[in-house]
Design a binder for these strands. Structure first.
Lengths: 222, 222
DNA sequence: TTTTCTATTTTTGTATACAATCACGATAGC
DNA sequence: GCTATCGTGATTGTATACAAAAATAGAAAA
């Protein structure tokens, strides 16, 4: 697999990772030439990467001033999760009314995938199936724009995710919540399903809290 | 007022306007050198502008392929408004519980501003006060991230807005809806206030429909 | 000491040059 | 005739050079 083209993208990912790992202080200024030297590229692709990072919200670009790291505080992560929960809840609410038979099948398939992966203790498979399940719900909302924005927020939260934390007892509980959501959807109870999803995401958020508390506001990168 | 620095920003605004006005076909490829010549700049700031436009969702950048115009269809605009309505409704729901006394004062001030502007027939003042009113609600949600994302979506919708369309009878109706929302908030009825806001935004969306229908999928820029 | 202005240095923004990749058409093979 | 391969031109990605703006430091004045 060639991992070549688009230096800008590669740099963006690396810096994203570094910021999430706490390698930079919040508000810290990023020096373009220094970073360019560090990644062994010119300033051109580096500046592109900085713009991409701004789109993700990890840096703020101030004209004629430079790029400043915007590392989300714990408060902000909670805020982001509050919105994530509401958006997923909205997806479920709309999906309950709009889901197509084909989508319902894929939803059930994903749910089965979660069950099997969990019973066999395959964490990676569980996360994959879990991702499919949520993805189908976004799609079934019938609002492609909402689906895109939800995926975008998910991606924005992902660098701060630590899967291992889920592996305790949370995984099994998560399964049960999925089942409850799907049942509510089957009964056509949109609001109930939405509420369950909101709680489901909020519960997820707590594992992030633990991560943040563990890593702290300032941690070293590998 | 100096309108100088940051050619990239200027270009971005101009292209944004052009796309909104229908100067480009959806899916049309944007040639970098041609655009650079057109705006009399080099490719460097032009490419920055294209990235900014991608962040707004008006173009899609495909690696090694180029920039392609993504003009929202009527369907997509409706989808965007559906989400906008839900986000504003969420802001109201949270604000009902979390609003501070100071914010409540500013909310009432903005509402008064709307009334006065309307009674005096000053449309511009109305839009300004209306913007303040919604802005205070975003802020009062107590979720700064939600507020930012809502503002971002508002900005993303704004190029497709045509104020004149509101001036018919919609303006007065809008006022009444504001009043109803604020009253529900005062009574602490979060869900009711949220529902009112959702309807309020949806009603707004219909004026956009009219605009789209009038301008058509392909219109000429000024 | 504090402030303000200025000269210098640093850093950002833009233009240009070069390299890599893609699109397209011609040609060869089946 | 159809497909595949290759070569050429066009287009995107990156590096470098230059211009403009801001940060810094130092000196002069209050």
């Amino acid at each position: 697999m060639p991992e070549k083209s688009r230096a800008a993208d590669r740099i963006c990912s690396e810096i994203e990772q570094a910021i999430a790992m706490g390698a930079y202080e919040d508000g810290e200024k990023l020096n373009e030439v220094a970073l360019a030297r560090q990644f062994d590229v010119s300033r051109t692709p580096l500046r592109e990467a900085l713009q991409s990072l701004q789109a993700i919200g990890l840096v703020e670009l101030i004209p004629n001033r430079g790029a400043f790291v915007r590392r989300p505080s714990m408060t902000r992560l909670v805020e982001m999760f509050e919105l994530m929960g509401e958006m997923e809840a909205l997806c479920v609410k709309l999906a309950t009314k709009r889901i197509t038979p084909a989508q319902r099948l894929r939803l059930q398939e994903a749910a089965r995938g979660c069950e099997e992966a969990l019973s066999e203790g395959r964490a990676d498979d569980y996360y994959a199936a879990n991702g499919r399940l949520h993805g189908v719900i976004y799609e079934a909302s019938g609002n492609e724009f909402l689906a895109e924005e939800t995926r975008r927020l998910l991606r924005r939260l992902s660098p701060f995710r630590r899967r291992q934390l889920d592996v305790t007892g949370r995984l099994r509980a998560s399964m049960g919540e999925h089942a409850a959501i799907l049942e509510a959807m089957d009964r056509g109870e949109a609001e109930a399903a939405a509420d369950l999803m909101r709680v489901h995401i909020t519960a997820l958020s707590r594992t992030y809290d633990q991560y943040i508390a563990a890593v702290g506001p300032r941690a070293e990168a590998g």
